[in-house]
């Protein structure tokens, strides 16, 4: 019964959150000033006659009262019919599926790497609390935390692409190249290397700081002193008692970041001209491509909700005290 009693009330909560989010996804794009007419018309919308404008607007369903558009939108959401992009004239489902794997490749790899590095360094720093190495790593992390991502990305491009010529500066694959499967893997890895590196470096500090504080507070607990008094070695105390307890809050941070991983990273994908979801969203927002905005926002909303659920489910497993 346990898991169900835990789960059922949350399903209700999530349903409400989802409904609100889906409504916001509809209204937010329409509340922005600006018009998708330029998109609908292609170039030089000024050349259109009055009738042509009307035809375009009504073809896109934008002449209907807002409330009609809203219910129509709900109908589409419930049937997973996202329609066509105003701009690309392509089904939105395909657009998103084209872009999502690239985004996940860089965000999930970076999340994995930054989690491992952040946790390891966090424990280490806490263990050596107050010593030079702790102070140095703390300061480094705080400095990194406040580094703008586009700046770091551009530095890497200048270093690895322009000066050293080691890595490609743009894209996800070499366009038009015919490669063997092995060469393809190398090619994809070379293109993803800088985005992953930048993302990893920028997300380590958050995990590091959480892990360090969490480790410090666990180390102050009585049971740790007991463990040390029992004569356990430092390594044993750390691995069996400290990390096991300290990792709980960090796991929440990581689970939440998992949700945001789907949103891609607009800035990183722009700096490296990486064809991910973040760039798709950015282009959709800047040209008021309502259908694409709605569909991608919906994907983000669902991803974040799933990540939340995951965190909720994970918590009792990691920390038996929160089991109900």
């Amino acid at each position: 019964m346990g898991p169900w009693r835990f789960f059922l009330p949350r399903v209700g909560q999530y349903a409400i959150v989802l409904a609100v989010a889906i409504s916001l996804n509809f209204f937010l794009p329409r509340l922005m000033p600006g018009s998708p007419l330029a998109l609908l018309a292609g170039v030089e919308p000024s050349e259109l006659t009055q009738e042509e404008r009307q035809a375009l607007i009504s073809e896109a369903g934008l002449d209907q009262p807002m409330i009609v558009q809203y219910f129509r939108y709900w109908g589409n959401v419930l049937t997973f019919n996202f329609g066509k992009s105003f701009r690309m004239n392509e089904p939105i489902g395909e657009l998103i599926l084209d872009r999502l794997p690239w985004t996940l490749l860089i965000t999930l790899t970076a999340l994995l790497l930054s989690s491992l590095i952040g946790i390891a360094l966090g424990v280490l720093a806490a263990w050596r609390r107050g010593r030079a190495s702790d102070v140095a790593s703390l300061n480094t992390m705080i400095a990194l935390e406040s580094t703008p991502s586009f700046w770091l990305g551009m530095l890497f491009v200048a270093l690895f692409s322009v000066t050293l010529g080691w890595l490609p500066s743009y894209g996800a694959v070499t366009p038009g190249a015919t490669l063997s499967p092995w060469e393809t893997i190398v090619d994809v890895a070379a293109h993803a290397a800088m985005p992953i590196l930048t993302l990893t470096i920028l997300s380590v500090p958050g995990i590091f700081l959480t892990m360090r504080y969490s480790t410090l507070s666990v180390m102050g607990e009585d049971f740790i002193r007991t463990a040390q008094a029992k004569g356990l070695t430092n390594t044993q105390v750390l691995s069996r008692h400290v990390v096991r307890n300290a990792i709980v809050p960090v796991s929440t941070v990581i689970a939440l970041r998992l949700g945001f991983a789907f949103g891609g990273t607009v800035v990183i994908e722009t700096v490296f001209s990486y064809p991910g979801l973040g760039r798709l969203v950015f282009e959709a927002v800047s040209s008021r491509d309502y259908p694409v905005m709605q569909a991608t926002f919906l994907v983000f909303t669902i991803a974040v909700l799933i990540a939340n659920t995951l965190a909720d489910l994970l918590y009792p497993r990691l920390d038996p005290r929160t089991r109900t």
């Binding site: 922005m32 000033p33 600006g34 018009s35 330029a38 018309a41 000024s46 259109l48 404008r53 800047s286």
Partner: peptide, 13 residues
């Protein structure tokens, strides 16, 4: 850009 266009040149008309 879009907000700017909407003020200076509403609906490009």
């Amino acid at each position: 850009q879009e907000a700017f266009d909407q003020l200076t040149w509403p609906e490009y008309d």
